[in-house]
Every structure is written in C-alpha cells, then in structure tokens.
Amino acid sequence: MFSFVVKKAGFLKDIPLVAIIFDSLMRFWMFVTKPELLDWIDELEEDMAQMPETTIGIHKYGGTQFNYKGKEFAHVHSNGLLDILLNKELKQSLIFEGKIKDHHVFKNSGWISFQLHNKQDVGYGCYLLNKAYDRAKQQ
C-alpha cells in the first residue's frame, strides 16, 4: 500500500503537509491494526535520543526524523520503514547480508531502507541507526 501510494501519488509529496497527513493516517492505521509497531518506533526513538547532539523532529515527507547537529541522518515512516543514510560501501556490504534494501525512492544513493517486521528487527534498526550516527559524526 505504502509503495503503491509513493509510486502513484508521490508527486504530491511536495505540497506542504500532504506527506505528513498521509503518514498520520498510516500511524492511525498501525495503531488500530499493529500497535506493537508504534512501540518499536518509540524504542528506536528512545535509543537515538540518548546519543549526544541528536535531535528528533518531523520528517518533511512524514515520519520521525533523526538529526545529528541539525542534519538528518535517518527517518522512520509510521509503517515501520526505516530510511538511513550510509555510504555506498557500507550499503553494499549490508545489502550483501540481505537484511536491507535500496532506499525505496533514491535507489542509487547512500540511503537504505529497512522494514521493521518484528521486535527482533528493533535491535538491527538501532545497529543501523548507530552506523549512520557514527558516519554523520565523522563528517
């Protein structure tokens, strides 16, 4: 459903608030159908909030955004799709492990996507976020 909307109505994302509203609707749907997913997102958020110089805000295309010194290094949409900025080398090695995919929109970039399916995925999500945080810190 999410990929269908992104593919078919993605051009609407630049209209102010449209993506945020869509994400809120998705959050509501998850709250009704898979409430534990919102707990996993909260866990990612709490893990990142402990990192120095990290701030958490709203992503312009909907979801929760993680910044290091005000610069975005990851965001998670309310359907549990975690998008993380890594570098291409790290991305390749992680893709080889088979858990992550190219970013659902920007395929040829350092961005990757990781879908939270279960509680165990939270740990791997935190691992990826920490990698992205370290990368952001080094730059």
Partner: peptide, 17 residues
Amino acid sequence: IFSFIIAGAFIGRAMFK
C-alpha cells in the same frame, strides 16, 4: 479528523521541543 489531529499532535510535539 483523525489524520489532522494526529498530525497536529506530532507537529506540536516537534514545535514545543
């Protein structure tokens, strides 16, 4: 109503932070 109230609550959270 659901989507705009939820969006407002999260926008508000970011604003007041």
